[in-house]
Amino acid sequence: MPGLAQGRTVVVTGAGRGLGRAHALAFAAEGADVVVNDLGVGLDGAPAAGNPALDVVAEIRAAGGRAVAHGGDIATEEGAAGLVDTALRTFGRLDTLVNNAGFLRDRMLVNLDGDDWDAVLRVHLKGHFLPLRHAAAHWRAAAKAGRPVAARIVNTSSGAGLLGSVGQGNYSAAKAGILGLTLVAAAEFAGYGVQVNAIAPAARTRMTEGAIAAALPEPEDVSPLVVWLGSDASEGVTGQVFEAEGGRITVMQGWRPGPTARHGARWSPSGAGEAARELLARAEPPLPPYGVR
């Protein structure tokens, strides 16, 4: 029986370890050809020894699959363009992009300097935007040429992007930005035959090392949803955000209008404050950011 991703070429960024590695192996197991992107850096983005992308490619090939490594920096124009080009030159097509690459530089906001802010926003947010844009340009050209397109993009956000996380202001901002990017891309790319969704995974990886990681499930538990979203089987699903942890999948519903007050004239400051307090009393209380009890 053909796998769910049979005949598709899938690109996974940050696929040398953790969630990305699990996604790459899961797609290959379902019949996809896989481009395994990874810079091979440490948790903080600094250079590290080894080439994890080549290790994952070797695993896929040993299991009878087809894969190629890409070591470019996907937060640069050259690296993102090369990512798409690698898929097209090696396998002749590109069907699915899984944006997953990222790293951490955690600090409380008063101790967070501009370089650590910029570095995390760059790899997470720009590292989503540039591969997404280059892939979409390829699919738009195919659609305009009359070729059928059934493309998929799966972006990676986080509970930190949904709720915030104490000590991770840069990471939370980047992951929240990815949610906004997902919604815009889903709307703009629909006419080209491209579906765009996001996941907010929780799993035991290098980025969740420490006390929290011990209670988290394996990265492989998240990958089945990613494979489905990246396959033809997810037809009609776009602009959605899914939280995934172990055996739990939740559709996240985001910002929606809550209680509203209207005034026939301009509010006074005190009147606006009274109305705001009345509305808050009727509204659902927000969930606390991670790290707040």
Results as ranks from 00 to 15, higher is better:
24 A>I: 05
261 A>W: 06
241 V>G: 02
256 R>G: 13
175 K>H: 01
16 G>Q: 05
68 V>G: 10
80 A>Q: 05
113 D>N: 15
98 V>R: 12
21 R>V: 05
226 V>G: 00
8 R>D: 06
117 W>F: 15
35 V>F: 06
202 A>T: 10
217 P>M: 01
160 A>K: 07
240 Q>N: 08
70 H>M: 04
250 T>I: 06
285 P>G: 07
60 I>Q: 10
113 D>P: 12
279 L>I: 09
259 P>F: 01
24 A>F: 02
200 A>T: 01
235 E>W: 00
207 M>Q: 10
111 N>Q: 14
246 G>I: 06
105 R>I: 00
189 F>K: 02
274 E>I: 10
183 L>T: 02
100 N>K: 07
212 I>W: 07
185 A>S: 12
83 L>P: 10
66 R>C: 05
194 V>M: 04
147 R>W: 07
189 F>N: 12
275 A>W: 11
91 F>P: 08
195 Q>E: 11
250 T>C: 04
91 F>I: 09
56 V>G: 09
285 P>W: 08
55 D>G: 06
28 A>F: 03
49 A>D: 15
55 D>Q: 11
269 P>I: 11
278 E>A: 15
65 G>H: 02
181 L>K: 03
70 H>K: 02
179 L>G: 03
236 G>F: 03
77 E>R: 13
260 T>I: 15
231 S>I: 05
58 A>C: 09
155 N>V: 06
104 L>E: 11
214 A>W: 03
38 D>A: 00
147 R>Q: 11
12 V>R: 13
166 V>F: 03
